[in-house]
Design a protein around this nucleic acid. Structure first.
Lengths: 110, 110
DNA sequence: AGCCATTTATTCTATATTGTATAGGTAATG
DNA sequence: CATTACCTATACAATATAGAATAAATGGCT
């Protein structure tokens, strides 16, 4: 029953962004969050493609929000991490952690 | 001059394994290290293919060891992480870390 | 009201890069 | 020369990435 897959590098980022954003998570904010926190430039297409993949695997699910009263406010699609998705992040991070543990890399991430 | 790429999920594992193994790092031990530490099953071909890619990107380099005096002791190909490779791990981990920071995931990896 | 320029957001599509397994080959030993 | 430990080749699936195209909304015209 427990999944055995790990999140890809970018998938991992996206899921973490969703967790941070809680109920403000949709394509545009996800992109912003990653760019803001990491300085990494992210193409919007990459974000949506990955969200779609994550959803098809059941790691996240989405619902359509209402349009907001601002110029051009097309309605957003909000995303949330599922329990299965949470398991996946944990599994992925545990694996990484167990490989890092005890190593001394500049800065130390432990 | 500084690279802007991040390591893929499996690449990341492999590089960490190399760092752990120091000068005993070659295909077979890399595989073992990952399997042992994470419980994840790893095919040997995946390891070699990834090592080859990492090398072509300059993240690791290899040298041929001498044959060892044991049955079937064919000479091994030893791998080491380059400075560029170290940068890549650090960059990758910093990015992850900055996304994780402040989140409370079961177990906490911070 | 009906149109349209503008804005925010999402979808589509195409390609490159990574991840993965399997089969096959090579250099050792006894 | 059979057996062992290790490595290479290859093929295919999954993930990452960018950019163009499309959609849905608003506000200001006329």
């Amino acid at each position: 029953m427990t999944e055995r897959d790990y999140l890809g590098e970018f998938e991992h980022m996206i899921v973490l962004a969703l967790l941070r954003l809680e109920d403000h998570a949709y394509g545009v904010t996800v992109r912003q969050e990653i760019e803001f926190r990491t300085g990494r430039e992210v193409s919007i297409g990459a974000v949506y493609a990955t969200l779609a993949r994550l959803e098809s695997k059941g790691y996240v699910r989405s619902r359509n929000g209402d349009p907001t009263p601002e110029r051009g406010g097309r309605s957003k699609r909000f995303f949330r991490v599922t329990a299965k998705g949470l398991n996946a992040v944990n599994r992925t991070q545990r694996a990484l952690q167990s490989m890092i543990q005890g190593l001394d890399l500049a800065g130390s991430y432990s």
